[in-house]
């Protein structure tokens, strides 16, 4: 409880770090903030071309099928990898100034999250123009899914950022894990492709599966996701957050000594 109050007191620090990260990223480039949109736009164009002409997929509108899952995945994986490194990267602050240490991973994950939200503007355009259309009831579920994914990503970022301080290999181990993880999650393929129900259940043990399936339900199939899928996603999110913070709070008091 004390932590919540303190984090609330330091909310401006979180905002300003997020702002600094978002604005600092493209500072100095000619197009500046526009890159936030140009990047995913071209990603989409490339996928469309690639999966229409070079590698045609039997799945209808595969580019959309892929895109609505890939953007949330990129948020998740960059939160995980960058988040794990965030305390190390903020060495100067952490070893010199007091503030609740959670601020650093929180603002990192939040800035990735804001980035994803901005990309969603493009997703909405594409969803509308591709003819899938927006189902208002389904769209209403979107914030819930996003929140579930956010707390999950945050939990893992807390966990791994703390571990990385003491065990620097974690960063590299994580990059291998995320590389494998994307194939264990139905990002590039639909979950139905796994025909064996038992194996499919096994896949649902992967916390990201529920999240990605829910995103795809809303944006590709324009339907309200299963309540159970949503509940699963949330459950995983909360477990990850609680566990992550537990480990983080144990380790944070020694950060300044090791950095």
């Amino acid at each position: 409880m004390k932590l919540f109050k303190e984090l609330y007191d330091y909310r401006e620090m979180i905002f300003s770090l997020v702002r600094k990260d978002l604005r600092g990223r493209y500072k100095g480039s000619v197009l500046g903030f526009l890159w936030t949109f140009i990047n995913p736009l071209f990603q989409l164009i490339i996928y469309t071309i690639a999966f229409s002409f070079i590698l045609p997929s039997p799945i209808e509108k595969y580019y959309l099928h892929l895109f609505v899952a890939l953007i949330p995945w990129i948020f998740f994986s960059s939160s995980l990898q960058g988040g794990a490194n965030s305390i190390m990267a903020a060495k100067n602050l952490v070893s010199k100034i007091y503030f609740p240490r959670e601020v650093i991973p929180i603002s990192y994950v939040t800035s990735c999250f804001v980035n994803m939200l901005l990309t969603f503007i493009i997703i909405f355009f594409v969803v509308i123009f591709s003819g899938v259309g927006l189902n208002p009831l389904a769209i209403a579920c979107l914030p819930v899914i996003m929140l579930a994914e956010y707390i999950m990503a945050l939990g893992l970022a807390l966990l791994f950022s703390a571990i990385t301080v003491f065990f620097r290999d974690m960063e590299h181990i994580l990059s291998i894990i995320t590389m494998a993880w994307i194939y264990l999650t139905p990002v590039l393929y639909p979950i139905d492709m796994i025909s064996d129900e038992k194996i499919q259940k096994l896949f649902y043990l992967n916390p990201m599966t529920s999240v990605i399936v829910a995103y795809r339900d809303v944006l590709y199939y324009a339907k309200v996701p299963d309540l159970s899928t949503l509940a699963m996603a949330f459950l995983f999110g909360i477990i990850s957050l609680v566990f992550g913070e537990l480990v983080f709070s144990k380790l944070k008091i020694r950060f300044a000594e090791v950095l």
Partner: peptide, 18 residues
């Protein structure tokens, strides 16, 4: 790359100011 004014906000926020 940020202006003095913007940096005042960032820096002061690190001290826990709203």
């Amino acid at each position: 790359d940020m202006t003095g004014r913007e940096n005042i906000y960032t820096n002061a926020s690190i001290f826990g100011l709203t």
